[in-house]
């Protein structure tokens, strides 16, 4: 269960998130859509505290945090523990180029969780099998295609056994022919019951795989409902306007 309560974030004078409140059930897959600059990435980054919110409360699994002037200064240790339970997949993969594929996936369990090396290795190989890349374990990221890199990044995140997986335009940097393999790994994860928040412009994926679609604009949640309903039959004019670009294209 994820509770996002009255989250606010500003960068200097620019208010990027205004009073965002969402409840997400365990196993739910939420597609977060909206025009560029609407605050989708910032919201995801607030959820794993890469960008700590200015105000509000967060609860993810057993971890909870309160933000605001009254709250104590965030300690690095608390931030790290919170982040261990929120997996993040970035648009540009951000794999560690100096480590093999296997070491990339092992790094979290081994260094952050202090897991025994042999166990971490087994865990990492299992995750690589899940994304279909166990044969690339000893390669370096530079020798992989973009789609393979992103699948390794997914394996690296799920190796931490997070309570939620956050995807920030995970397929936007890929050549069109490589998008499918990443989406199918994401779909498999969803079928296994992983809680997911997915920022995406792939409306077909959002419609098919997500349970729920949240449409954001200018830092506020404009519309929130069952995926097919929001995409096929949006209620708010701003959602309609945004989605019309996609219907025109496809």
């Amino acid at each position: 269960m994820i509770r996002i309560d009255a989250i606010e974030k500003r960068f200097d004078d620019l208010v990027v998130l205004r009073n965002i409140t969402l409840r997400i059930e365990k196993g739910e897959v939420v597609a977060l859509i909206g025009p560029s600059g609407s605050g989708k990435s910032t919201l995801l980054r607030c959820l794993n505290l890469l960008v700590p919110p200015d105000n509000g409360r967060l609860e993810i699994g057993k971890n909870r945090m309160v933000f605001g002037e009254s709250s104590a200064k965030l300690k690095p240790k608390d931030l790290a523990v919170f982040r261990q339970k929120t997996g993040m997949v970035f648009q540009h993969f951000n794999l560690f180029p100096h480590m093999t594929v296997l070491d990339n996936v092992m790094e979290g369990p081994k260094t952050a969780l202090k897991m025994d090396k042999i166990k971490a290795r087994e865990l990492a190989i299992a995750q690589l099998e899940k994304v279909g890349l166990s044969d690339k374990a000893d390669m370096y990221p530079s020798s992989l295609s973009g789609g393979q890199k992103q699948r390794v990044a997914i394996a690296r995140a799920i190796a931490m056994e997070p309570d939620v997986m956050l995807f920030d335009e995970a397929t936007s940097a890929l050549d069109p022919e490589l998008v499918g393999e990443v989406l199918s790994v994401m779909k498999e994860l969803a079928n296994e019951g992983m809680t997911m928040i997915v920022v995406t412009h792939e409306m077909a994926f959002a419609r098919e795989v997500a349970n729920r679609v949240v449409f954001m604009r200018d830092g506020v949640v404009v519309e929130d409902g069952p995926a097919k309903q929001v995409i096929d039959n949006p209620q708010d004019d701003r959602t309609k306007a945004f989605l019309s670009h996609f219907h025109a294209e496809s």
Binding site: L50, A80, F82, R83, N94, E107, A112
Partner: peptide, 21 residues
Amino acid sequence: DPGQREAGEAIGLMPGQILHR
């Protein structure tokens, strides 16, 4: 690339571990 630090943070490494690893 700042993305490297963020990737380290995202898997829950401490600042010292990110620097070192």
